[in-house]
């Protein structure tokens, strides 16, 4: 085992880590927007919307991410759109994450005790205000720890976008492996970077969970 390999490629790995983080960030943010819509559909009273929401979650959680990524890649190619791989990568991550985030949000909404919206209704609140002032603030707070967890999962899943050629941590590790003929050091190096990122995120998660407990919201 030659640790110097890792040290020499430190710069490349750091750059690649940045790409990994950027791609994952884009994925989770877009995924949140889509996920919120899917969640709204899932809890809607209109049956057709409910079915669409349920189908979305079922499909995007059921089909493996790798298949989804390749599908988007070939789907876009089939229709003649020449999109850069990064678009396929981010949309793949986003659409997949949206399904998980929709369920997180739905769980959070259910976790808000019913009595609170009841009290609002009894006081004469309009539906919109019950949502805006009572349900949403609390649902968002409740969903932050699981959303941070989802971000950690997405970061690991982002290693799959290496197959469409994005120069993130896994791909760069592969490159280093083939250039230096030292796959052990290359992948250990990549792995260490992933671990480091995870450690920092897990730390954020712990802080967030502690701070959100103050103010009375469990």
């Amino acid at each position: 085992m030659k640790p110097e390999v890792i040290l020499h490629s430190f710069g490349y790995l750091t750059e690649a880590a940045g790409v990994t983080i950027a791609v994952s960030l884009a994925g989770i943010v877009i995924g949140f927007a889509v996920g919120a819509l899917v969640c709204a559909a899932r809890v809607s009273h209109r049956l057709s919307l409910k079915r669409i929401g349920t189908l979305y979650v079922s499909v995007f959680r059921g089909v493996p991410l790798l298949v989804q990524l390749l599908f988007i890649y070939y789907f876009l190619a089939e229709f003649g759109l020449d999109v850069p791989a990064i678009v396929a990568a981010v949309s793949g991550l986003a659409l997949s994450s949206a399904a998980y985030q929709a369920e997180i949000l739905r769980g959070a909404l259910n976790a808000v005790p019913r009595g609170q919206s009841e009290a609002a209704v009894a006081l004469g609140f309009a539906g919109v205000d019950v949502w805006r002032r009572i349900l949403m603030p609390q649902a968002l707070r409740i969903s932050i720890p699981p959303l941070i967890n989802e971000f950690i999962l997405l970061l690991k899943a982002s290693s799959l976008v290496s197959v469409v050629g994005i120069a993130e941590l896994t791909r760069v590790s592969m490159n280093i492996a083939s250039l230096t003929y030292r796959p052990l050091e290359a992948y250990v190096g990549g792995g260490l970077f992933y671990l480091a990122i995870n450690l920092v995120l897990a730390g954020f998660g712990a802080i967030a969970e502690r701070r959100l407990a103050i103010g009375g919201v469990r």
Partner: peptide
């Protein structure tokens, strides 16, 4: 019975 105050 359970007050139903808004915790936030």
């Amino acid at each position: 019975q359970h007050f139903n105050l808004w915790p936030h």
